[in-house]
Amino acid sequence: MSTTATSAPLFGMHGVTVTFGGLTALADVDLDVEPGQVLGVIGPNGAGKTTLFNVACGFTRPDAGAITWRGEDVGRLRPHRLASLGIARTLQGLGLFDGMTVLDNVVAGADRWARSGFWSDLLALPRSTRDERDLRERAMAALSELGIAEHAARYPAAMPYGLRKRVALARALVAEPDLLMLDEPASGLSEEEMAELGELIAGLRSRMSVMLVEHHIDLVMSVCDQLVVLDFGRVIARGRPEEVRDDPAVLDAYLGVEVDTDSHPAPDAVTHLGEGPR
């Protein structure tokens, strides 16, 4: 666990409010992600977790509030600027590029490391070729780290869900972000895969901060340094996992809502893909 209470937070959201018509999806939410920290965002379905990520990535513009990166207000965030800031995100629905090989999917994730431009691509100048080789090596390294290097030449659509999830993760990791945002990374994984994922996330701490939205309480409890609990768009509790677990407000929010502790959802990948695209 990192003890960086004195240094500036890496990423912060301050007073973020989002309304959809009459519905308040986020109400005055504050949170900070410290360098090297794994921050879990939990809450019942519809609590506003994905909306929080969408605000953080510039897909949803908040009605009020500010976002800071390394202590500076980023103003109006545009999603394609995130990668160059050092922020990567995986999507709840994976969003793999199905017309491209696994390797190309991951190379695409390494885009921020490329220097060559349109003209050198057009003329296939040595600069482009060098760049390309470098990106491929980075991508192969990321695939190896996730144990799927042998699938590099395949197309994701023909692969099992668990492998596809790893491809999506490799695509985010290859960017070597300072902040990695994971939206429900464990959904649809087997018990064993989930344990591996837990170890992987814990191991990322030395390289980056992680923001994790997850339903599997076991996983959240084991890997997160800090938790933020949302309910109806409000932060109802925050703190270390063991503090939050016993918080009466949290128990109350989850009352009547099935807390998915250890049983993993239906193994059928198709139903999983269908239930929430992002």
Binding site: P79, A83, A88, L91, G95, M100, A108, D111
Partner: peptide, 10 residues
């Protein structure tokens, strides 16, 4: 292939 994912890779 995917507009959202494309933006997220920059």
């Amino acid at each position: 292939d995917d507009e959202i994912a494309a933006q997220l890779v920059g």
